[in-house]
Design a protein around this nucleic acid. Structure first.
Length: 829
RNA sequence: GGGAUGGUGGUGGAAUAGGCAGACACUACGGACUUAAAAUCCGUUGCUCGAAAGAGCGUCCGGGUUCGACUCCCGGCCAUCCCACCA
């Protein structure tokens, strides 16, 4: 070594450049620019207290993409904000007797500090927090626009109720029958609640998934399944002795002659209607049965419980065969899917089969396999086949029979083809305080009255007592007691607040125009910046945020507030989780990796490199102390490989830093090629949107290995100095602080992040000489060094001179010769 | 029950229009430097045989296609995730 290299002091370097970027507002995205736009966004965090390493991974990927695209010549919009309303703030406030707003503000301050500590290139001038009136007034404004179009409505319905959190939940927020926040078993309750009519967009949300070629397939499949479109028919059975019918929905109309009972949900209206024709004793039994179901949680009632049921004593008339079939009240039919009643066909539906077995109901086979194979006992035959015992439909295929029978029912006027969705309307009412007040007033005279735009925002009152029964706002007289906007008489405000997923269904538009006090965003800004070119976040939001956002965006598009595509996120990327030594991080385990301690111990450049390097970004990463120390080592090696040479490497006045020097030796060629292999990989991984920077950083390791070797043997080689000069450009997107320090050390003024990336140069990448693999019968027997331009005949001739090749040919005649240019020769004997 | 994804050394991973399996890193071991340690630098590291040259085996298992298969096809096993009486 020529002289002692000063050691790489990451702490002061990182601090220095973070201050510089902040002072210069280096990453502000101008609305006016001659460059093409690129909107890169990571999912905004909930301000829970501390940034965790999962956030860090998300932002490391997003920041690498944003910095790469900036260096590739785009005007990059890269914003950050806070998903600041929600239950944890309220629960924390209850636990400490504090104010949710204060708790949230404190957390935002801390997490903003930590995000800045990561050195991410956000445009902080566009920062938003959803709990601020400047933001949530537009939630209310958008709610009113939805309301005007009949897309927001209130109705009484069976809903998911979490007894722990004392609030209702959307379908999407119930996981395995439990509350997604607290894990408590969810109950069913009949309550009057606000819904958004997302089902009006079900077909478009489904069909347009095909347009989203930039989304992962699994995400699209999950949304497809969640929307759950199924095509079939709805038709009615008459009730014997009563002037009423029971409608059923089925996708298997071909099995209709196999109906041996009707199964209805306990909440079905017909249950009450039947009281007039059945005995009081039975009515009481049915009521008791229904009551026993009501007290069960959804989970107990469905997955965990066997199929229970009770015979009503009443019969229905089969609309085609005219046979009488018993009507049963059951536990396994869902009240809010289809019609709340199903035709029981035990021979061809496994659930009906189990129920029929238990209650000794007949099983009538009407569809048989086409190959006449024996029907397996104890299992229903659920495939399509050929119909038997089905009047004049006998002999038809299932597919044809479905069409023919639907036609018959339509002719008879007792049924029609229909479509059902698993997707339900989105329940947005929350009986909690820390959210956007729903801007509705109830007037005794005028009824439900929307708050006029000029009265927005409806402010959340401060100092509300939390933790009692019912909705906290309901007990705040100054809030609830108001006057009717229409008639001026005393009236009551709605005391429910909105699901926070309302906020995040459109927040990406607010970044475009964060200070607009006339509109949530101006259409001109939307036209300029939308769509989001690259969205990066966790996969857990697939059927929540990502579905709701699509719904909102289609609504905005229909209203003409956004133009072009009616999908908000053109490309979506899900990063994988981060574990610690193979386990989930948690406070109780005491294995949480903190951002502050990591910044102090290893520096954030090392952390970023580690998170990008340890696995492909979509995979689960495992944080280990050994792993991170490997990346610390890399940064030290880069420092030592560059620092002593910076002065000599600095380009002379008027000389281009990027000019490729001539290679004086094979070692030089290796070095120049190593530089451009990094550049090539970085560019390709970015533009292909694979973001497998783990392979890019592996090539960086190789480059540094080559530089270290060269520094020992040829410290004055132009190739080495070129590698030193270009190093800051290469690493800028991945280790932005050390990149700036080296860039400055080369005598450059201005930020390396505003430079263009090193363009991969074919002249450096191309090889003069290659290693050709020689196989005999598909097995490698020799390797020969040959000119890259070698002709086929010459390559084959050289291969046949190799002693080991000749040995394995054993003098046998050559039957075939394969030549793959640049790769291999295979001699088949 | 339905759907999706995946299975490569001691470990994370690399390799895709079918063409050198194991890049790069971690761990481990050995060497140099040091009074010593740390750090650093150099080397070895899929398994078996061999002093070496080299040989055999090897990408979950069993078949198939091919001059050639981690990669494509058929059958099976295992793992993870999501959804789930959705009629």
């Amino acid at each position: 070594m020529l002289f002692m290299a000063e050691s790489y002091d990451f702490a002061s370097i990182e601090h220095k450049w973070q201050s510089r970027w902040e002072r210069d507002a280096s990453f502000r995205a101008p609305n006016q620019s001659g460059k093409p736009k690129y909107y890169a966004m990571e999912m905004l965090p909930y301000p829970s207290g501390d940034l965790h390493i999962g956030h860090a991974k998300n932002y490391s990927i997003g920041d690498a993409v944003a910095r790469m695209m900036r260096m590739l010549g785009y005007n990059v919009l890269h914003p950050m904000g806070w998903d600041a309303f929600g239950l944890p703030a309220e629960n924390a406030a209850i636990a400490r007797g504090a104010d949710p707003a204060a708790w949230t503000t404190e957390n935002i301050l801390n997490m903003r500090r930590q995000i800045r500590l990561m050195g991410t290139s956000y445009d902080w001038s566009r920062e938003i927090a959803t709990c601020e009136p400047e933001f949530y007034r537009w939630n209310q404004w958008l709610f009113l626009r939805l309301y005007e179009r009949g897309l927001a409505y209130k109705r009484e319905a069976p809903v998911n109720w979490c007894p722990q959190d004392q609030t209702v939940l959307a379908n999407e927020q119930v996981q395995d029958g439990r509350c997604w926040r607290c894990g408590h078993l969810v109950e069913r309750r009949n309550l009057s609640q606000w819904f958004l009519r997302i089902t009006a967009y079900a077909d478009r949300l489904l069909d347009d998934l095909d347009k989203l070629s930039g989304w992962p397939d699994r995400t699209r499949t999950m949304q497809r399944n969640w929307i759950g479109r199924s095509e079939g028919a709805t038709f009615a059975f008459a009730v014997d002795g009563l002037d009423a019918g029971i409608e059923v929905f089925t996708t298997r109309l071909d099995t209709v002659y196999g109906v041996t009972f009707l199964a209805v949900a306990a909440e079905h209206p017909i249950v009450a209607a039947l009281e007039s024709i059945i005995s009081a004793e039975r009515s009481a039994q049915i009521a008791a049965f229904a009551e026993s179901l009501k007290s069960k949680s959804e989970l107990e009632r469905t997955s965990l419980m066997e199929k229970r049921g009770i015979f009503t004593g009443a019969y229905a008339i089969h609309p085609l065969s005219r046979e009488r079939v018993p009507i049963w009240v059951t536990s396994y039919v869902l009240a809010d899917y289809g019609t709340g009643a199903v035709m029981g066909v035990p021979a061809h539906d496994q659930r009906d089969f189990e129920f029929a077995r238990k209650h000794a109901l007949p099983v009538v086979t009407v569809v048989v396999p086409p190959d006449e194979a024996a029907v397996v006992p104890d299992v229903s035959f659920v495939e399509d086949g050929r119909l038997i015992a089905s009047d004049d439909f006998s002999g038809m295929s299932s597919e044809r029979a479905r069409a023919e029978i639907a036609g018959r029912l339509e002719t008879l006027g007792i049924g029609k083809r229909s479509v059902n969705y698993k997707l339900r309307d989105w329940l947005i009412s929350r009986q909690r305080y820390w959210g956007t007040p729903i801007p509705i007033v109830y007037c005794p005279r005028c009824g439900e009255v929307p708050v006029p735009d000029k009265d927005l925002p409806v402010l959340l009152p401060p100092g509300v007592r939390l933790g009692g029964e019912g909705s906290p706002l309901a007990s705040v007289a100054e809030f609830v007691e108001t006057t009717c906007p229409t008639c001026g008489e005393p009236a009551r405000r709605e005391s429910d607040t909105m699901d926070t997923f309302f906020d995040t269904s459109w927040y990406y538009l607010r970044y475009l125009d964060p200070h607009n006090d006339q509109l949530p965003w101006s259409p001109a800004r939307a036209q300029q910046w939308m769509n989001v070119d690259q969205y990066i976040g966790g996969a857990e939001h697939t059927v929540l945020h990502l579905l709701y956002s699509r719904f909102f965006y289609k609504f905005f598009h229909d209203r003409g507030w956004v133009e072009g595509s009616d999908e908000p996120f053109a490309h979506l990327f899900h990063q994988g989780m981060v574990l610690r030594d193979g386990e989930k991080m948690s406070k109780s385990r005491g294995n949480v990796v903190g951002i502050d301690e990591t910044a102090e111990k290893t520096g954030v450049d090392a952390m970023r490199l580690f998170l990008l390097y340890v696995t492909p970004p979509e995979d689960t990463s495992d944080w280990t102390d050994e792993g991170i120390s490997g990346r610390v080592r890399l940064l030290h090696r880069i420092w030592r490989a560059c620092r002593p040479f910076l002065e000599r490497a600095a380009p002379a006045r008027g000389e281009s830093l990027r000019a490729l020097p001539p290679a004086e030796s094979d070692d030089d060629k290796v070095l120049l090629r190593a530089v451009h292999l990094v550049a090539k990989s970085a560019v390709e991984e970015t533009l292909s949107r694979r973001f497998h920077y783990n392979t890019t950083i592996a090539k960086l390791d190789e480059l540094v290995n080559a530089m270290t070797a060269a520094a020992g043997t040829r410290p004055d080689s132009p190739a080495l100095l070129y590698a030193v000069r270009t190093m800051p450009l290469l690493i800028a997107p991945f280790a932005p602080h050390i990149a700036e320090e080296l860039w400055e050390g080369l005598g450059n003024r201005g930020s390396v992040h505003l430079e263009s990336y090193l363009e991969p140069d074919e002249r450096a990448l191309v090889l003069d000489e290659i290693t050709l693999v020689v196989q005999v019968n598909g097995k490698v027997r020799a390797r020969i060094r040959v000119p890259a331009s070698i002709a086929r005949e010459r390559a084959l001739a050289l291969a046949l001179e190799e002693p080991n090749v000749l040995a394995h040919l054993e003098g046998k005649p050559v039957r075939k010769q394969i030549y793959v240019p640049g790769k291999l020769v295979n001699i088949v004997a």
